[in-house]
């Protein structure tokens, strides 16, 4: 069985087609112009071909992001499927993020999404983002509906578990509509776990 699964002629289909986007912060351009689609894939083999071809997240310049979203969803609040959504956010500031391997955590996040690791809740998961910032990297999982508390919490617990974060490290859930109207640098958290 194992041998058959590794047959190089058979590609393993994913449940969803995923699109990888790259954001580079160029202040002379509009936000949306800095966001570019790289490619999409819908098999395990094609995912690795993409992953091994691109710069690893940890080597990106500060201000860059990778966004991995289901193919029909744009990585922005304005998209119909994100409008009433939110994100689970893991922020690694300089102090708390010491020794954190952003490449490893980003890969774990991506594998969890493309492998439908959120079980029945996977349908509510729209995508994931890594923000590379000098003051501290951020990882997030975007969810399509912030009002379904139980679903939101299940996804958050799984995300934290898959990242292997210690119990005292908290991740926070923010509704996009709160992020849009935020004052200062952080939006109100609806949950922390």
């Amino acid at each position: 069985v194992e041998k058959l699964e590794l047959d190089p002629l058979i590609k393993h289909p994913l449940q969803n087609r995923w699109c990888l986007w790259f954001f580079k912060n160029d202040k002379s351009k509009d936000w949306a112009d800095n966001l570019r689609q790289i490619t999409s894939f819908d098999t395990v083999e094609d995912f690795w071909a993409v992953y091994n071809h691109i710069q690893s997240a940890g080597k990106l310049a500060s201000g860059c992001d990778y966004n991995l979203f289901k193919d029909d969803i744009k990585p922005m609040w304005e998209d119909e499927r994100n409008k009433t959504g939110g994100r689970w956010l893991a922020s690694f500031d300089k102090r708390g993020g010491k020794g954190i391997d952003v490449d490893k955590l980003w890969l774990e996040t991506v594998l969890c999404l493309i492998g439908e690791g959120f079980d029945e809740e996977s349908d509510v998961v729209n995508g994931c983002v890594v923000n590379v910032r000098g003051k501290g990297n951020k990882l997030s999982v975007w969810i399509g509906d912030y009002k379904r508390d139980e679903v939101v919490l299940k996804i958050g617990r799984r995300f934290k578990e898959r990242l292997g974060l210690p119990p005292r490290f908290q991740i926070a859930f923010e509704a996009h509509q709160d992020t849009i109207v935020k004052r200062g640098s952080s939006a109100k958290s609806r949950f922390t776990i």
Partner: peptide
């Protein structure tokens, strides 16, 4: 059914980069 793959399964397809 849903095409679900755990991390171990997915990782075995990672080409050897060493």
């Amino acid at each position: 059914g849903k095409k679900q793959y755990d991390r171990t399964f997915l990782l075995q397809f990672q080409p050897d980069c060493t």
